[in-house]
Design a binder for these strands. Sequence first.
DNA 1: AGGTCTTTGTGAACGTGCGCACAAAGTCGC
DNA 2: GCGACTTTGTGCGCACGTTCACAAAGACCT
Lengths: 225, 225
Amino acid sequence: MTADPAARRGIPDATVARLPEYLRALSSLAGQGIGSVSSEELAAASGVRSAKLRKDLSHLGSYGVRGVGYDVDLLAAEISRELGLTQDRSVAIIGMGNLGRALAAYSGFVTKGFRIVALVDDDPAVVGDTVAGITVRALDDLDRLAAEGLSIGVITTPAHSAQLVCDRLVTAGVHAILNFAPCVLAVPDEVDVRKVDLSTELQILAFHEQRKALASGLGLEEVAP
Amino acid sequence: MTADPAARRGIPDATVARLPEYLRALSSLAGQGIGSVSSEELAAASGVRSAKLRKDLSHLGSYGVRGVGYDVDLLAAEISRELGLTQDRSVAIIGMGNLGRALAAYSGFVTKGFRIVALVDDDPAVVGDTVAGITVRALDDLDRLAAEGLSIGVITTPAHSAQLVCDRLVTAGVHAILNFAPCVLAVPDEVDVRKVDLSTELQILAFHEQRKALASGLGLEEVAP
DNA sequence: AGGTCTTTGTGAACGTGCGCACAAAGTCGC
DNA sequence: GCGACTTTGTGCGCACGTTCACAAAGACCT
Ligand SMILES: NC(=O)c1ccc[n+]([C@@H]2O[C@H](COP(=O)([O-])OP(=O)(O)OC[C@H]3O[C@@H](n4cnc5c(N)ncnc54)[C@H](O)[C@@H]3O)[C@@H](O)[C@H]2O)c1
Ligand SMILES: NC(=O)c1ccc[n+]([C@@H]2O[C@H](COP(=O)([O-])OP(=O)(O)OC[C@H]3O[C@@H](n4cnc5c(N)ncnc54)[C@H](O)[C@@H]3O)[C@@H](O)[C@H]2O)c1
């Protein structure tokens, strides 16, 4: 049954999370006209160790040539296929505030196989506006959008509305959600939610800053035992 | 020497990454006037299992009361202290484009102990503008800012400028950087870089979408063996 | 064609993180 | 004051991820 012993079924999550970075590095190399790259070079460009890179790539098959390295275009195509980027995916952004507008105006997705097909808001003052060449639609249009094959929903509403919007997306049949609101979303098992949180990142940085400060000049605020 | 056997030295990274979420859940509870919470309840509000939550909290000491739970305010204070949020940290945002402006306008940091002290851009047409009540400064001002105790740098410039900006920040003495540009930054060991990447998140979602699609209707595009 | 040299792919050791399950500890009712 | 009940804190085993180190595989030179 398992026809391909090397790869099939089950690429580790940690590996999947790094594939986009490899893909970006490969695109950059291709743009410089470089056709072949070693694991050492690609790893450096991706910010990982070469052993890790090789093990990651081994999960999707044997596309390298020993003594030479990897063909840039071939490897990029292979990673794209594995990530499911060969077929374009449509994205809707819900919440046309500061962040939602910035995302809508961002051209970085489009080149990567993501197409923003809809912008949504519930504020009547915003609905009908044109942002980045797209007319903002009302929340009720979500069901219609899903029927048209919406693949991913991006939530950029305030936290108190996020669960509501999430529920609408799920009901409409969306199985992949990217959440920018600082809250946890409850979803059925079959739905995939990823969260991006600014404050969390800053707080993690703050922790390491403090740790460094404590390590260098220890015992500054210790007054009494 | 190691006075406190329970906690001191070495909170796992995975735990640190979850502490901000616990803190947010606690803030929410405090806002509802709730003074005490069990690990089960707090875990549910944070989107984790209660055993994981308890183990995480055990790394910073014993602040729970058996048979009762945790004091909301006490625990929040303790986590804040551990994360180094008791002392305010100043943040500079470099790159006043779509994303940089959205971040500057965002009020979510301020309440968490982060203070945006400077906005920076290298475009003469942008320098001098007022964004979110702050005057945009030139890139050369970075050194002066660092001298004033700048703690964290946020990079929201295009990718091709990110390394340059990063180098300026490092030279100026900044040891914590949050990077939104889609590229890897080279920094000395003592500098901490975290990256937030939209496209990566979407690509990971796409991978799981594809996997689900393959699992349900298998062998759709298999034509010949 | 044979030898050398480079680089891949991977087995094995190691470290980290996670979940279960339970004993210890403290509360609350009586 | 005592017993039953609740909830914490943690020891243990397992799964996952990372790193090392090397044998196998192929390119390139002569
Ligand atoms: N702006 C940032 O830099 C930033 C950073 C980190 C996190 N966030 C988070 O991202 C979210 C959006 O931030 P923002 O600054 O853009 O906020 P914002 O207030 O500028 O925009 C929110 C938008 O969502 C719309 N909205 C509200 N409820 C809605 C609903 N039920 N359905 C559809 N649309 C609805 C509002 O009309 C508004 O246009 C917030 O949750 C915020 O915490 C923002
Ligand atoms: N906008 C988004 O939603 C989004 C999403 C994901 C990632 N990003 C990334 O974030 C970055 C910024 O995105 P954006 O949409 O705001 O771009 P943008 O082009 O709107 O803004 C970039 C800003 O950086 C300034 N800048 C350029 N070089 C600089 C330098 N050397 N020093 C200081 N300032 C400099 C420019 O003057 C400009 O104001 C990009 O790297 C982009 O890939 C953006």
